[in-house]
Simulated assay, not measured.
Amino acid sequence: MPNALELRATQLAAAFEQRLDRDKKELITNSNLAADESTETGFESLRFIAHRIVGSARLFGCDELSVPAKELEVLVEEGAHISSIIRAVNDLVGQIDRALAEGISTPEWAKTRDA
């Protein structure tokens, strides 16, 4: 039987899935803004979204999301060429699609342990 922590973690996983779906849309929108190269807003938004995904993905043990999100964050911070940033956005969006199709699992740290 799940404990209160496991039930809450399951709710958080569902909320994380919803956030990922919104983040995916924001990544696409802001990569288009960044590609315009007339504004820093798109780049800063990409960095912020990637940073948010890194933290949440690590909490849920989703290395398949945290690694490409961190790569995107670093590329933006280092002022990489727009083509590298767009490629990183596309890779991350693909990983988000796969994660959403598979579903985010309750993290191991929240599962009931037998004593």
Rank of each mutant, 00 (worst) to 15 (best):
A13G: 04
I53Y: 03
E44P: 07
L59D: 01
E26S: 01
L5T: 08
L33A: 14
S31H: 04
A69H: 04
V67C: 06
A57T: 03
T39R: 15
V54P: 09
L46V: 11
L65T: 02
E44N: 13
A50K: 03
L7K: 11
T39N: 15
A14F: 06
L46T: 10
A13Q: 02
R52E: 08
A35V: 14
C62K: 10
S38V: 14
R8N: 07
E44L: 14
E26R: 02
R22G: 04
A13C: 05
L12I: 06
G61I: 02
T29M: 08
E6D: 06
P68V: 09
A69R: 01
A35I: 15
E17S: 12
D23A: 11
L27D: 03
R19H: 11
E17K: 10
S38D: 14
R58V: 04
F43C: 12
S38W: 12
G42K: 11
Q18W: 09
A14K: 10
L20E: 00
L59E: 05
E26M: 04
L7R: 10
R19Q: 13
A50F: 01
D63P: 11
S66R: 03
F48H: 08
T39F: 15
F16Y: 14
L65Q: 00
I28W: 00
L5N: 04
A15K: 11
E17V: 05
S38T: 14
L46E: 11
P2G: 07
E40P: 13
